[in-house]
C-alpha cells in the first residue's frame, strides 16, 4: 500500500528526514511514533503532497506521490495535527463543502455526510456551528471530513492530541472501527503506549530515520533481549552466584533477597545453556527469564540509544 524509499528532507542545516524507509501493507493500522521533531509530521506532509522531499520516493498503491500528486490526493485522507474551522458554517455544511470538492453534491452528499457523521458519533450535531463544537468533536468532524471521498489511506497526524481521556477513548474506538472496515491507517503520536493497544504494527522514528518497525510483541521481545536476566532460586543461591561470576557472558550481578539480576550478553540459546548448566549442578530455580519491559521504557530506551549514537 505504502512504500517509502530513502526519503530525505532538510530545512536549512536541520535534517528532518535522513533516508527514511518504510513499508506499510494494505489494511494495516500503523502507529508512527517518535519524539517531537523526529520527522513524523514532515513525513506525513510529504505523503499528503503538502511538502516536497529533497530526494527519495513515496509510492502509494504503486503511484508515485511526487510525480502524480493529484492522483494521490484521491487516495488519501489527511488530518493535520493543528487545524482550524470556518466561522458561520454548520457541521453538515462543513462536510458538504468538502464533499463538493470531490464532486459529490445534492442528496448524495447529504446522505454520505450523514453516514460519516454517524460513524464519528456526531449525528446529533448536524446543525451545530463548527466553531462552537468542543475540540474532541472538531477532531472527529475533521476525521469524518477526511473520509468524505472514501480514501484508501488515512494519514492522521496526532489525532488524539489535546483530547481529554474520554475523547481519546472515543477516537480510538472510531479508528479501530475504521481499521476493521479495511482502511489503511497511519497515526502518528509521540506517546507509544497510546498507539500500542490499537495498532497492528508500529514504527519508531528518531532523527529522521526509522529505528525499529514491527508488531508491538515483536518489538517488545527484541528489545527485552537487552533487559537484565532475572533468576529466582528455590535453593543453592550462593553456589549459583559463584557459577555466574565464572561465566564470561555475565557482565554484572545484582544480588537480591531470593533472586539475582544479571546483565547477560547472550541470546536465547546462551540463556538456555546457562539455565541447563545451573540446573545440572543441582541448583533449584523457580524463575528464569528477562525482565519484562514496558512500552514507556522501551520508547525511552530506543530513542535514547539512537540519540547516543548520533
Amino acid at each position: 500500500m505504502l512504500e517509502i524509499r530513502d526519503l530525505y528532507k532538510r530545512y536549512g542545516k536541520f535534517t528532518a528526514l535522513d533516508g527514511l524507509n518504510l513499508e506499510i501493507g494494505k489494511g494495516e493500522l500503523f502507529g508512527f511514533v517518535g519524539p517531537n521533531g523526529a520527522g513524523k509530521t514532515t513525513t506525513m506532509r510529504i505523503m499528503s503532497g503538502l511538502l516536497r522531499a529533497d530526494s527519495g520516493s513515496i509510492l502509494i498503491d504503486g503511484i508515485d506521490a511526487v510525480a502524480q500528486p493529484m492522483k494521490i490526493k484521491e487516495k488519501i485522507g489527511y488530518m493535520p495535527d493543528f487545524f482550524g474551522v470556518y466561522d458561520n458554517l454548520k457541521a453538515m455544511e462543513y462536510m458538504e463543502f468538502y464533499a463538493s470538492i470531490y464532486g459529490i453534491e445534492g442528496l448524495e452528499a447529504r446522505e454520505l455526510c450523514r453516514d460519516l457523521m454517524k460513524l464519528v458519533n456526531l449525528e446529533d450535531k448536524e446543525d451545530a456551528y463548527v466553531d462552537g463544537l468542543s475540540r474532541g468533536m472538531k477532531q472527529r468532524l475533521c476525521l469524518a471530513r477526511s473520509l468524505v471521498h472514501n480514501p484508501e489511506l488515512l494519514i492522521l497526524d496526532e489525532p488524539a492530541s489535546g483530547l481529554d481521556p474520554r475523547a481519546r477513548f472515543e477516537m480510538k474506538e472510531i479508528l479501530k472501527n475504521l481499521s476493521s472496515m479495511g482502511k489503511t491507517i497511519i497515526i502518528s503520536s509521540h506517546i507509544l503506549p497510546e498507539l500500542a493497544e490499537m495498532c497492528s504494527s508500529i514504527g519508531i522514528i528518531e532523527h529522521g530515520r526509522m529505528v525499529i518497525k514491527g508488531t508491538v510483541d515483536d518489538i517488545m521481545s527484541r528489545m527485552s533481549a537487552s533487559n537484565p536476566l532475572i533468576i529466582r532460586f528455590a535453593s543453592g543461591k550462593q553456589e549459583a552466584v559463584q557459577r555466574l561470576k565464572e561465566n564470561p557472558r555475565v557482565q554484572n550481578i545484582a544480588i537480591q533477597e531470593d533472586s539475582v539480576a544479571i546483565g547477560f550478553s547472550g541470546g536465547q540459546e546462551e540463556e538456555a545453556e546457562l539455565l541447563g548448566s545451573l540446573v545440572s549442578q543441582g541448583i533449584g530455580i523457580c524463575h528464569f527469564g528477562r525482565e519484562e519491559g514496558n512500552l514507556e521504557s522501551l520508547f525511552m530506551q530506543i530513542t535514547k540509544e539512537d540519540g547516543n549514537e548520533g
Binding site: 503532497g49 503538502l50 490526493k73 489527511y78 493535520p80 487545524f83 470538492i101 475533521c142 471530513r145
Partner: peptide, 14 residues
C-alpha cells in the same frame, strides 16, 4: 491564519 488552508491543499482542489 485560520489553519484551514492545509486541508484544502490536500484535497483534489487545484
Amino acid at each position: 491564519e485560520r489553519q484551514t488552508l492545509e486541508i484544502l491543499l490536500t484535497t483534489t482542489l487545484k
